[in-house]
């Protein structure tokens, strides 16, 4: 039986990157106590930091909507999702900090100073409650597909173990998204047009979440952190969600969307420049989101101080 709980090896060394590559190609799993190549450490660290930042920024977004969620049950769901995302960020920051590149405090301070990156989707503004549903239905599904593709291989042991739980919980979020969408899709004309407007705003950010086409020699693919190329994940997503949204009677905001003779859906060409600008913190809602997160961090300094003092026994 496949199990993630096997006593990890430790202290392994590799002569050079070719030797390390053979280990990876033979299905090897890297553990924190191994003397991993610096290049691998840096790439994997950057990837996990990006994932952790995205979970944290995503959690803070969900939190904004708890007071606006219509009804106790939806508030309960948004509370739980917020707790999930913040919990995921916590676990991922622990794994990343242990890699010895940056401490958790350094990662958070870089994030709040706008020096590090997180998923494109958290740079845009959610305008109405229907935007939150579009995010839950479209964005969570894209994030889920992308995380599942990382879990499928993932040669860094601690990250893979955490991903197992994260992927299970994101699957649960997706079901909530489907349920909430169904309610709007079968609702009044106002509800349906609210969702269409939200879809117009969120379709492209969701599709772009997978990123531009992978480099021919992407080290994350070579070292089996990622198992699939960005463009393949994006194509599979379009193929799945176009018919579902059409089935509910919604229009995809892509005039060049077309279907092959064999039934495959193709999105129109994507101009990646706006996305690149967004990722450099130039998105419409980036500043407000980062400022809010930074304010939270500053406002809770006294809690960290109190905990540090307790830890130091003073």
């Amino acid at each position: 039986m496949h199990t993630l709980a096997t006593a990890p090896a430790t202290g392994r060394t590799w002569i050079d990157l070719d030797d390390f590559q053979s280990f990876i190609d033979a299905g090897g799993m890297v553990e924190p106590g191994d003397d991993m190549p610096g290049e691998y450490r840096d790439e994997v660290f950057r990837f996990i930091e990006f994932h952790a930042n995205s979970e944290l920024m995503g959690g803070l977004t969900e939190r904004d909507w708890i007071p606006h969620a219509p009804g106790l049950r939806l508030k309960q769901i948004f509370l739980a999702k917020t707790q999930d995302e913040i919990g995921h960020a916590h676990l991922l920051y622990m794994v990343a900090a242990d890699m010895g590149v940056k401490t958790r405090t350094e990662m958070l301070e870089d994030l709040f100073a706008g020096r590090s990156r997180f998923h494109n989707v958290f740079h845009y503004q959610a305008v109405t409650w229907a935007d939150q549903i579009a995010i839950a239905y479209l964005v969570d599904a894209a994030a889920f597909a992308s995380q599942r593709a990382v879990f499928a291989e993932c040669t860094y042991g601690p990250y893979k173990r955490v991903l197992k739980r994260i992927v299970a919980e994101e699957g649960f979020h997706m079901r909530h998204g489907e349920e909430m969408l169904l309610r709007l899709a079968t609702g009044t004309d106002t509800q349906r047009s609210m969702f269409q407007e939200a879809l117009d705003r969120w379709w492209w950010p969701a599709v772009q979440l997978f990123g531009p086409d992978s480099d021919p020699d992407d080290p994350l693919l070579r070292w089996k952190i990622k198992s699939q190329r960005n463009e393949d994940l994006r194509a599979a997503y379009v193929q799945k969600y176009v018919p579902l949204l059409h089935g509910y009677g919604f229009t995809i905001p892509d005039p060049e969307l077309h279907q092959d003779d064999d039934g495959t859906w193709h999105a129109g060409p994507i101009d990646w420049e706006p996305l690149k600008a967004t990722m450099r913190m130039g998105g419409p809602d980036s500043k407000r989101r980062i400022d809010t997160a930074a304010r939270n961090w500053a406002d809770t300094a006294w809690v960290r101080e109190a905990l540090d003092r307790r830890g130091a026994g003073t």
């Binding site: 924190p32 106590g33 707790q83 995921h88 916590h90 622990m94």
Partner: peptide, 18 residues
């Protein structure tokens, strides 16, 4: 407080896994 109400977060110092 872990990701869900029924779980707490811990760190194993021996194998360095959360």
């Amino acid at each position: 407080a872990g990701p869900t109400r029924c779980r707490a977060v811990a760190w194993c110092a021996a194998c360095r896994n959360p």
